[in-house]
Structure formats: structure tokens, C-alpha cells
Nucleic acid binder design. Structure first.
Length: 105
DNA sequence: GTGGTGACGTTTG
DNA sequence: GCAAACGCCACCA
């Protein structure tokens, strides 16, 4: 059983277009939580394989949560598989791949 | 019930 | 421009 917030996060993450990435703050902001990025990250930790959590990174474009993947390198691999260049655990041209739910939706 | 920590972000010094 | 502190909410010890 999940809260509405978690449901929203799951839905939003599922709506992320292929080859695009977003940030915790953007998701939280879209849900009305301006500074609760931690919550978003926590929710993603409970996300199932059904959720492309690899498309969610921090504001720095850094794959901070890759340690929670299995294996951790899977995150980078998936991003690269979608056409996103990843170097040193961080997204290249992050601004170019950034997907803002507030704008796109 | 209290304290500390966490897939973070923003603001101030 | 870089470093440090605060804020937010939830879970674990």
C-alpha cells in the first residue's frame, strides 16, 4: 500500500520519456513539495522494477542512487542504452537531457 | 519518545 | 566560486 505521494512519484517517473532524465527536486516540486527531494529518493528506493528509477538523478546530474541498483552499473548502462552519455557516474549534457514535468506536463 | 540518518535542494557566508 | 548550514518528511536504532 502506498501513499498518494508515492503513487504520484511512480506515475510521474513512468511518464518520463525515453532518453530523458529528471531530478528529485523537479518531481517533488511537481507534487507540491519544493524541498522534499529526500522523500522522492526514499520513495524511489521502494520502486519496483516497473519503475525506470534510473532516469531520476540529483540536481547535479550525478547518479547518486546508483548504489541502490543491482548491479550499480545497471543505472549507467540503461542511461547509455537510451542514448544518454554518462561519464564518471554523471550525465553528460545533463541540461540537454533534463525533463521537467512542470513544463512538459 | 528521542536522536540520527538519508537516492536532495536552496540559501547564506 | 566554494563551503557550510538549514529545511523537509519518513524510517531505523
Amino acid at each position: 500500500m502506498q501513499t498518494d505521494f508515492e503513487t504520484n512519484v511512480f506515475k510521474l517517473v513512468k511518464l518520463i520519456p525515453k532518453g530523458r532524465v529528471t531530478s528529485y527536486g523537479a518531481i517533488g516540486k511537481a507534487l507540491g513539495l519544493t524541498n522534499s527531494a529526500r522523500m522522492v529518493g526514499r520513495v524511489l528506493s521502494q520502486s519496483k522494477p516497473d519503475i525506470p528509477a534510473h532516469r531520476v538523478v540529483n540536481r547535479n546530474g550525478l547518479l547518486t542512487g546508483k548504489h541502490h541498483f543491482n548491479p550499480p552499473s545497471l543505472m549507467q548502462k540503461k542511461l547509455e542504452n537510451e542514448g544518454i552519455k554518462v561519464s564518471n557516474d554523471k550525465i553528460v549534457n545533463f541540461n540537454n537531457h533534463f525533463w521537467d514535468p512542470l513544463i512538459e506536463l
